[in-house]
């Protein structure tokens, strides 16, 4: 039985190239209407996986299904369902923006080419450059044209491979807003190195490393899973140091640094028990000056590092 909440199901996919295995037994799924973050360091197998999903590469084993139908590289049936913006957008520098988008729309047999092109030009604020040569556009505009080609035939599923990479901050914010708006109508698989961006945009994530999935699922659930105990940031005066806290439970100082006149300690306790009151009392009793006490929740970066370091 096909679960229609899952628009994409990647099941035990392996891709071998001569002499190396790029991805091995990769499984994850993407929920309909979500923005799914796909994370991994360079060479982790991200692009190979994305290209297999888009039907540009054939898996050595395993299956990929989109909207319940298998994706087969040399079959044409799924090709109007996926819009792909690769890391290097497939642009012709000697074509004009509008002509290029018309060409892509015609390749995808769009019924009303002019209307579709006008719509996407307007949505991505490209109307002002529609008659300009793509080769003469700034990187930001070229990226928008790349996104426009993925959208011009209105596919239900979008794959965006590092769409904001190397863009100026203003364009990044605009594109991010645009992607957020898009998620109301489309499902998006979004790969990025900018972890705060993924945290901001995505409801679900998958972390891949060395061709294997390290974590996949709901972002909050993954946060919970990777939070191993209470993490506190405690600040005292610069010349002071923390007393022994072993009475509060097993703990470890993971980081110590000085900010202005304050010495800060990052403490990780083995269990999740909230011991802030006892810790505060202990510090006051020793005549120390408590300047900061903050519960730290693990950031996506910590989760990412944990997933890619400890299991590699």
């Amino acid at each position: 039985m096909v679960n229609m909440d899952k628009i994409l199901v990647v099941d035990q996919v392996t891709k071998e190239f001569p002499g190396r295995t790029a991805v091995s037994g990769v499984s994850f799924s993407v929920n309909k209407g979500s923005i799914h973050g796909f994370l991994g360091p360079n060479g982790a197998g991200k692009s190979t996986t994305l290209r297999m999903i888009a039907g540009l590469l054939v898996p050595t084993s395993g299956t990929i299904s989109l909207l319940g139908a298998p994706v087969v590289a040399d079959k044409l049936n799924h090709r109007n369902l996926i819009g792909l913006l690769p890391e290097t957008p497939p642009l012709y520098p000697d074509m004009r923006v509008e002509a290029y988008l018309r060409f892509v729309a015609k390749l995808h047999r769009v019924s009303n080419v002019s209307e579709s092109v006008d719509k996407v030009l307007e949505a991505l604020t490209l109307t002002g450059v529609r008659h300009r040569l793509i080769g003469n556009l700034s990187k930001g505009y070229r990226q928008r044209v790349g996104l426009a080609q993925a959208l011009v035939f209105d596919p239900p599923f979008l794959i965006l491979d590092e769409p904001t990479n190397g863009l100026d901050p203003q364009t990044v914010v605009e594109l991010r807003e645009f992607i957020k708006k898009l998620s109301a109508q489309k499902t998006i698989l979004f790969s990025s190195h900018v972890l705060p961006e993924v945290e901001q945009l995505c409801d679900q994530i998958t972390i891949i490393h060395h061709g294997r999935i390290r974590a996949s699922g709901d972002l909050r659930e993954i946060h919970r899973r990777f939070r191993q105990g209470l993490v506190l940031r405690v600040g005292v005066l610069e010349h002071e140091t923390l007393p022994d806290l072993s009475g509060l439970g097993k703990y470890e100082v993971t980081h110590e640094h000085v900010v202005g006149h304050e010495r800060r300690f990052d403490l990780v306790f083995a269990d999740d028990r909230d011991c802030r009151a006892e810790l505060g009392r202990l510090i006051f009793d020793r005549g120390l000056h408590l300047l900061t006490m903050q519960v730290q929740s693990p950031e996506l970066e910590d989760i990412f590092l944990h997933a890619t370091e400890t299991q590699s």
Binding site: L56, L76, P86, P90, L107, H108
Partner: peptide
């Protein structure tokens, strides 16, 4: 070189 063949391969063109 420009990786533009992907455009064709992502569309229903043989």
């Amino acid at each position: 070189r420009q990786e533009t063949l992907d455009l064709y391969w992502l569309s229903p063109v043989t």
